[in-house]
C-alpha cells in the first residue's frame, strides 16, 4: 500500500473536521475523495502532506509516517493545494523553474513527465501566471507539482472553478499519468468525476461513508430509484416531500430522484397522486442509480433528512 490511513481524527476547536477516517491506496491507483464542501477532504490531504498534525490516528505515505518522517514525505509528494498557489507575478517559465530548483532538479531532467501538459501552455511561457485563464493555471500548477517526479500526486479539488472542457482535459491527463504508474489521490466536489477514478471514497462531515469502485458504489444503492418529471418542478418537489410514503427525494437537474418507502410500490400510484395534486405531464421512470444517488442516499440515512441534491451535487456542466 502506498498510502495507509488509520482512524484519523482532527478537530479545530469545537469543529470536528475528521472523525476517524481509515482507508488504503494501492500503488499506481487513481483514488478519488468525493464529498461536499466541509466534508474534511482538504484537512485529510493536509495531514497526508505533513502540513497539519492529526489529533489521533496514524497515516503513512510510502512507508513514511506523516508526523515523524515529514521531511521524507515532503521529498516524494507532488502536492497541488485547492487554491491556485503559484506566484502570480512570476511567468509560467519562472514558476516551473522555481519549483524544479526547490526540489533539487531541473525542468530539462524531467521534461518528459510534463511534456503532454506543458506543451499546451508553452506558447504562453513568458506570460505572468496571474494573467492565465483558469484552465491554463490548472495545467501550470499540475506541471509544477509533477516536475520533481513525485512518487505520489495529491491534488486537492484541482477542477474546482475550471470550465467543463478543461475539466475533461484535466481528467484525461490524470488518466495518462496513472497509466504511467503514478499513484494519484484526488479530491473533488463534482460527483460526475467519480467515474474517472479506480476507487472512490465518499466523504461527508468528517467521515468516509463508503469506499468502492465507481460501479460498486452505484450497486450499493439498495432501493429502486425513480426519476420523476412534471411541468412545474417546484410544485413537484413540494408535493413529493409531503407525500407520506416518500423515503427520499432530491432534485437532479430538471428531474427529481425519488425512492419510496413501500416494498410493493407501483410507479403508477405515484403518477396518479401527482396528477390529482394538479401537476401535468407527469413521468415516472425506473433508473439506474449513479454515484450521486448513493452519496445522497448515504448522507440522508446519516442525518435522517431530505436534502436538496443540487446544494452539494454540483454535477458540473
Amino acid at each position: 500500500m502506498t498510502v495507509t490511513v488509520k482512524n484519523l481524527t482532527k478537530n479545530y476547536g469545537e469543529i470536528k473536521a475528521l472523525k476517524g477516517v481509515s482507508f488504503d491506496v494501492a500503488s499506481g491507483e487513481l483514488f478519488g475523495l468525493i464529498g461536499p464542501d466541509g466534508a474534511g477532504k482538504t484537512t485529510l490531504f493536509r495531514i497526508l502532506t505533513s502540513l497539519l498534525l492529526q489529533d489521533d490516528g496514524e497515516a503513512k505515505v510510502h512507508g513514511f509516517d506523516v508526523v515523524a518522517d515529514y521531511r521524507e514525505i515532503r521529498k516524494i509528494i507532488g502536492y497541488m493545494p485547492g487554491r491556485f498557489s503559484l506566484y502570480q507575478d512570476l511567468t509560467v517559465e519562472e514558476n516551473l523553474n522555481f519549483f524544479a530548483t526547490i526540489f533539487n532538479t531541473t525542468v530539462e531532467e524531467n521534461y518528459q513527465l510534463i511534456r503532454d501538459i506543458y506543451h499546451q501552455i508553452a506558447p504562453f511561457k513568458t506570460r505572468r501566471a496571474g494573467d492565465l485563464s483558469g484552465g491554463m493555471k490548472q495545467k501550470l500548477a499540475l506541471s509544477c507539482a509533477l516536475i520533481h517526479k513525485p512518487e505520489i500526486l495529491i491534488l486537492d479539488e484541482p477542477t474546482t472553478g475550471v470550465d467543463a472542457v478543461s475539466r475533461r482535459e484535466f481528467w484525461d491527463m490524470l488518466a495518462r499519468l496513472r497509466a504511467s504508474g503514478l499513484t494519484i489521490l484526488v479530491s473533488t466536489p463534482y460527483m460526475d468525476e467519480a467515474s474517472r477514478c479506480d476507487r472512490v471514497a465518499l466523504m461527508d462531515r468528517g467521515k468516509i461513508l463508503s469506499i468502492n469502485t465507481p460501479a460498486g458504489i452505484s450497486d450499493e444503492f439498495s432501493r429502486p430509484l425513480y426519476a420523476v418529471k412534471a411541468d412545474r418542478r417546484y410544485q413537484l418537489l413540494k408535493t413529493l416531500r409531503s407525500y407520506p410514503y416518500t423515503r427520499s427525494v432530491f432534485t437532479f437537474g430538471e428531474l427529481a430522484h425519488y425512492t419510496d418507502s413501500r416494498d410493493d410500490f407501483d410507479p403508477e400510484m405515484l403518477r396518479s397522486h401527482l396528477e390529482q395534486e394538479g401537476l401535468r405531464d407527469v413521468r415516472v421512470e425506473l433508473i439506474n442509480p449513479g454515484v450521486e444517488d448513493t452519496l445522497i442516499s448515504l448522507m440522508t440515512t446519516e442525518s435522517e433528512s431530505i436534502v436538496d441534491g443540487n446544494k452539494f451535487g454540483k454535477s458540473g456542466e
Binding site: R46, S50, I77, P81, F84, S85, L86, F99, I102, F103
Partner: peptide, 14 residues
Amino acid sequence: EQGTMEVLLASPLN
C-alpha cells in the same frame, strides 16, 4: 495569503 506557503512547506526546503 496567496497560499504559496503551503506549497513551499510541502517541499524539501527546510
